[in-house]
Design a binder for these strands. Structure first.
Lengths: 182, 182
DNA sequence: TAGGCCATGTAACCGGTTACATGATTAG
DNA sequence: CTAATCATGTAACCGGTTACATGGCCTA
């Protein structure tokens, strides 16, 4: 999923400025499955406007900098629906935590405790965000994906909490084996 | 998680050539939370060897091209454990499927059916892979992460199967609303 | 004899991030 | 008075992918 398609998707829901798009991706409705930075938003918005897939208008605000609000055009909507119809690529997933957990025996209980507690905290925050999105939005497809997210992330959190101790207990075991072998 | 750390992690489990490292990431024990290509493996291996974190030796095989098998050095092991101790970054997760599902009302039932069935197939394959890893490996930390994977991906698959029809039913609804409004 | 697997490696490219530049307003 | 929020944008950089080059062996 490239930046272009993502921006088109967001603008298909509602008009937004570059700044607002960033917020949507960081805190809002899209925050749990995407992530982009200003450095890709603004150039992409400019390109999209040049291609007439979106149009921007300046809005002056009292006591705030002007903002450039973008709307998706008919051409943009068609292009977006076109890209939607090609089968979605498999999820991209990379987890440093899993690598650390897989090597739990090489590190100390403190390191593992910190790692898993950090993760539990992040997961709880994510569940709270998704739960919030689900309750505040009555769009059926958004309801579907947020329910999906709650189900999966809830199961995730459940496992982490139920198996926290057992992972911590593995920490440092490789070192102990080494010492025992001497 | 950069390529360097990942390679060190793999070599910490066992010696491997670049080709075998790639296999581990595509089909093996690491396949469900990482992904790298030859274009990053070979240069990284060369850099790692220059830094004396790994050492390579040539092994000639009958009826096969020679392979260069790498081992992690003591220095490499220390560097690896050092990086393990810094708190793991939050998971990177990007999903085209969720974007498509969120826009289900804009597309046809056929497109959504294909998208979700593709996903169900991929998820089943992943569960099978993780299940295989869990049963064939008795390393406790690997057991832990594969059990974690089974739990989470099992919940994922469960939701997909139970809610497949309801997502498909949303397809094309935006178009119908448009038509009704005319 | 065609295609797939084994095996290593490079060069061009690309999508995206980081850091910077700028500046007004408002809340603590 | 300071920090945060609002707001837009650019340039340098970087990690990684794609595509290519090479070539022998084995299987269908």
């Amino acid at each position: 999923m490239n930046t272009q398609t993502l921006i088109l998707a967001i603008l298909n829901f509602e008009d937004a400025s570059g700044y607002e798009i960033k917020k949507q991706c960081t805190e809002g409705a899209f925050s749990y499955f995407v992530d982009i930075s200003y450095g890709s938003i603004y150039p992409t918005l400019a390109k999209l406007e040049a291609d007439e897939l979106v149009i921007g208008r300046s809005e002056s605000q009292s006591g705030r900098p002007d903002k450039k609000v973008f709307s998706i055009t008919q051409k943009g909507r068609e292009a977006f629906i076109e890209t939607l119809s090609s089968p979605p690529a498999i999820d991209k997933f990379k987890s440093e935590f899993l690598l650390v957990a897989m090597c739990a025996d090489l590190t100390s209980p403190e390191v593992i405790t910190k790692a898993i507690d950090k993760r539990i905290g992040e997961m709880e925050a994510l569940v709270a965000v998704i739960g919030g999105l689900r309750s505040e939005c009555d769009h059926p497809a958004t309801q579907w994906i947020t329910s999906y997210g709650m189900h999966v992330k809830g199961a995730d959190l459940e496992f982490l909490k139920n198996n926290r101790e057992s992972l911590i207990a593995m920490a440092g075991q490789a070192v102990k084996l080494d010492a025992a072998a001497e």
